[in-house]
Design a protein around this nucleic acid. Structure first.
Lengths: 195, 195
DNA sequence: TTCATAAACTAACAATTGTTAGTTTTGAGC
DNA sequence: GCTCAAAACTAACAATTGTTAGTTTATGAA
């Protein structure tokens, strides 16, 4: 079955590239670097992909769409704001644990996308942030969240979730469920002991 | 006074480079890009700096040392853990507001430093994190912080502070003092309304 | 005006970049 | 063992990279 083999090889290129991009950034990784990590020559990569740019856009858009689909599910649910926020935290932990390398490019290499993928990515990102913002606003209106500045609440929580890929493994023997519990507490209830 | 003029020109190069590196990353910015933004030719840059690498290490190490000096002051103080955490938040907001562009390289381009600057940077960073960790531990031991996982508390707070440069300006008419107050509340007390 | 030097310039370099063209090797199904 | 396509290879390309050498221009002090 050749078709399957090709797709496997393409996925290998995407996975290895994700790792390299995460370590040094898209621009600092050459096609020869990727090829060497695969144990082949640079020109051979083009049997499986059309360009370096294609590798980047697959890495970024695949994981961006995972976040979008997860958020859409949460928005459509009947939960109150706090339950929705907890589900967003679960979403980020799960996507991070399963796609840790891709998150490097998602966070730091998106600006090297070209059109039309760049505009598409920016649209997904701003829609994601807007959905998040409305949930925070809802929480304030419901009286479940403190009446603080919405942007500060939104980006404080989102920043931690977005950079989770950089440090989650430092909890040795990462227990995903336990990490979710801890993060819900820290991000939503705070760290200061209540009297 | 020629000496002063040269230093001014060098600072201009550093500042313009910080902006460009923040937008596209160190590797994607060429010496010709920097020169064009200065209105001169690439070769002329070398009247003021010795290499592209020198630009990067000045940008990163200057701001890294600001964080280190700020943290050292906090560690030496007589405050309890919560006051120390509040001072760390103040430190980050102040350094961010005054060095917003440099923080891009600090976060995303440090791996392009060469030795011995790379090792020096990594030493500063791990010392900073260790100081932060000890303050969190102290808070737990004092009974002022929730007895949660220390790494999760540490990196949740630190992640938000480190990426503040990406979003602080979204609060239109950024009032630094107000931002400090909001962040102390969100990061330490949480967003969920207490009964 | 003269002079010194800071700071710009032009021209070039060797290395590296992403990519293409054309060729050979590999391996599964007959 | 033959066939054929997938997937590797070699060789080369034009463009861009950081940097150097040597030269000209601009400016402030004498």
């Amino acid at each position: 079955m050749k078709r399957v083999k090709t797709e496997n090889r393409k996925e290998e290129i995407i996975n290895i590239s994700s790792k390299l991009f995460k370590e040094k950034g898209y621009s600092a990784v050459s096609m020869r670097d990727i090829a060497q990590a695969m144990g082949i020559k640079a020109a051979s990569l083009y049997n499986h992909i059309t360009s370096k740019q294609e590798i980047l856009s697959i890495i970024i858009l695949d994981v961006a769409e995972k976040f979008t689909r997860g958020m859409d599910r949460i928005v459509e649910s009947e939960d109150n704001a706090i339950d929705k926020l907890e589900k967003i935290i679960e979403l980020h932990v799960n996507v991070t644990v399963n796609n840790a390398d891709a998150l490097g490019s998602l966070n730091n290499d998106w600006m090297h996308l070209v059109e039309p993928q760049l505009s598409y990515f920016l649209k997904l990102r701003s829609q994601y942030e807007e959905n998040f913002r409305q949930i925070v606003k809802l929480g304030v209106d419901e009286g479940h969240l403190e009446p603080l500045n919405v942007e500060v609440m939104l980006f404080s929580i989102l920043s931690t979730l977005r950079t989770l890929y950089l440090w989650y493994y430092k909890k040795e023997g990462v227990d995903t469920a336990e990490l979710v519990v801890q993060m819900k507490t820290v991000l939503l209830r705070g760290v200061v002991l209540k009297p």
